[in-house]
Amino acid sequence: MIKDRLTELNKAGIKKGDVIIALILVLASFLALLYSPGSSDSTEKYAILYHKGEEIDRINLDSIDNPYEKPYILNGLKAIIRYEKGSAAFIYSDCRDKLCIERGQIKGQADASVCLPLNLVLIIEGGEREKDMDAVVY
């Protein structure tokens, strides 16, 4: 079985060294996952908004009964974040590519959405860690 797979890879010009490099990086990604920061013991879920690395807003997502939208105007550029029970999402931004909006709702611990042009980072802290794979949005 493994031999068949290696023969297939050989046809694509893959060498043993390539496989070793891939395995090392996969291992490194698992090790990095074990030591990744951002876990919080808090049982309450918060959406924390950072601008240029400084916390500018902190919303308790567990206490929201009615969803609402909150605008932020920073350096003449506008962003709107929608807060719901247990989740938050960029719904408007003056940035060009709108990747922060495409990112959609974030809801699990260590989940984040980033709007680089506006230098905004929205992070979820507390609650349970999401099992889905998430990462930075450029």
């Binding site: 891939a22 990095a32 400084e54 230098n119 930075v136």
Partner: peptide
């Protein structure tokens, strides 16, 4: 550096894993 928050380093494992998949496809 740009955002001033080291929290984003939490995404390193996922980016590393994605780079193996994308690197392998482009490599082939």
């Amino acid at each position: 550096i740009v955002t001033g928050t080291n929290f984003l380093s939490a995404y390193l494992p996922f980016m590393l894993f994605a780079s193996v998949v994308s690197g392998l496809i482009t490599g082939i």
